[in-house]
Computed example of a mutant assay.
Amino acid sequence: MRIASYNVENLFDRAKVFNVDDHGPHQEIIDAYAELSKLFEKEDYSDQDKTRMLELLGVLGLLNRDEGEFAFLRKIRGRLIRRPRDRSEPKEIVANGRGDWVGWVELKTEPVDEMAMILTARVIFEIEADVIGVVEAESRPVLTMFQDFMAKKFDLEVPYAHVMLIDGNDQRGIDVAIGTREGYDIVSMRSHVDDLMANSERVFSRDCPEYTVVTPSGNRIVLLVNHFKSKFGGNDPASQAQRLAQAKAVAGYYKRLRDEGIDNIVVLGDLNDTPDSEELKPLIEGTDLKDASTSEKFTEFEFRADNGNRGIGTFGLGNDDDKIDYMLLSPALFGRIEKGGIFRKGAWPGSRPPRWDVYPELTAPLHAASDHHLLWVDIDL
């Protein structure tokens, strides 16, 4: 069977701020959004916090109204900011802490470039995985609509008879999902959206669902699909601590499954950190899970190793220190690997010179299927 993992970075709609133009993504908006979201969650707002909030709202274009070019200020209950009608008068943060109001900053979305959608489909259709873990999917209906629409466009059979997504904790609707071909039945699901850290905050930014799949030969395999806390807006101690907590939690689920007598387990997805990071140690070193890319049979990198890199990176330009996507296998599955690799034809290859071959239609970064590269592995199961 072939298993794949792919961060599609949304299928139909993507945060407007992430869409690259001639000047690149709007980093100042990204940083302001991340910092402001963290300030909003503080129990008490100091005078310094309030001053900084006003500065960041200004960067986001939200100082005078609730809608800017790249973001909305969503208010459900209570009041965050006082805006005098006379714009010459100063604005004021009137909430004194998280308990005084309910709301958040939300990034605006816009339709994904049509060619990017088409190339995303080509990547998924061409790899022909029997089971695929999908990261950054909007919803189950969107996933099914996407594959139905693209199958009709390419005059192909719909690849995944079974598609499942459990809503996670991300307010932007960025979730993880699974698709399986006919004959690969999803027989059970278990969510961890409500698991808590020691500080009573939720462990997962999205979820770590456990899906049990039965293969046509009757074998059972459990897949844990992940999207760990990102370094988006900076890699501060809070982000590091959450990724560490997520790695520890997933390691715990894995050990429980093994104690229950389950041998065929895959932990896959975007873990947003490198194999040598402290944050991933509980998974990489604290269990007997094995990284599929370390197998001698995992050889199809499609990377022109002309810059000192082996080409194991899974993000951006594929450099070794860009490895943030994983397929971690239990020993029973690792020992059955037949071959595997990284599929890059839908990712922007750079231009000095291009680092891998791409689809002919991929002529600009805007058209890239994703900044992430698809991982796949064939297992004799």
Rank of each mutant, 00 (worst) to 15 (best):
127 I>L: 11
328 L>N: 03
266 V>K: 06
303 F>G: 07
139 S>G: 08
36 L>K: 09
302 E>C: 02
47 D>N: 15
339 K>G: 09
7 N>R: 05
52 R>V: 03
361 E>L: 04
150 M>Q: 03
307 N>Y: 09
241 A>H: 01
286 G>L: 05
298 F>N: 15
321 D>R: 14
270 D>P: 04
27 Q>R: 11
21 D>Y: 05
174 I>S: 14
311 G>T: 12
274 T>N: 04
92 E>P: 06
76 I>F: 09
88 S>P: 05
19 N>V: 12
228 F>T: 11
133 G>D: 06
33 Y>L: 01
38 K>F: 09
39 L>V: 13
48 Q>F: 11
324 I>F: 04
245 A>W: 06
41 E>A: 10
202 R>Y: 07
286 G>W: 02
67 E>F: 03
216 P>W: 02
190 R>V: 08
235 N>A: 10
328 L>D: 04
280 L>F: 03
250 V>G: 00
215 T>C: 08
214 V>R: 14
170 D>K: 14
36 L>Q: 10
95 A>F: 01
380 D>F: 00
341 G>C: 08
168 G>M: 15
310 R>D: 11
339 K>D: 13
200 S>E: 10
212 T>A: 11
349 P>N: 06
284 I>S: 10
190 R>N: 10
292 A>T: 09
28 E>R: 10
149 F>C: 00
341 G>Y: 04
257 L>E: 13
295 S>P: 07
370 S>G: 04
288 D>G: 07
177 A>W: 07
323 K>E: 05
267 V>E: 01
173 G>Y: 10
304 R>V: 04
333 L>C: 12
122 R>Y: 01
30 I>N: 03
6 Y>N: 04
264 N>E: 14
61 G>V: 05
83 R>F: 12
143 L>D: 02
276 D>C: 07
346 G>P: 03
336 R>A: 13
150 M>G: 02
32 A>C: 01
66 D>Y: 06
196 L>S: 13
13 D>S: 13
335 G>V: 11
43 E>P: 00
110 E>Y: 00
97 G>Q: 03
64 N>M: 13
353 P>L: 12
230 S>H: 08
271 L>H: 11
201 E>H: 06
297 K>P: 10
112 V>F: 00
325 D>F: 01
128 E>Q: 13
334 F>S: 14
254 Y>F: 14
91 K>A: 14
158 V>Q: 14
31 D>T: 04
287 T>G: 04
173 G>Q: 13
351 S>P: 00
301 F>Q: 12
334 F>I: 11
304 R>G: 05
213 V>K: 07
325 D>N: 06
148 D>S: 08
191 S>P: 05
90 P>V: 15
201 E>V: 03
60 L>R: 05
377 V>S: 04
252 G>M: 09
35 E>T: 12
340 G>C: 12
332 A>F: 03
310 R>Y: 11
374 L>V: 03
346 G>Q: 01
303 F>V: 09
106 E>R: 15
330 S>T: 11
291 D>T: 05
132 I>G: 00
319 N>L: 11
293 S>W: 01
10 N>F: 03
170 D>G: 12
117 M>H: 03
349 P>F: 09
85 R>G: 15
163 V>F: 00
258 R>T: 15
67 E>M: 08
138 E>F: 07
354 P>R: 13
200 S>L: 09
312 I>H: 05
348 W>M: 04
122 R>C: 01
271 L>A: 07
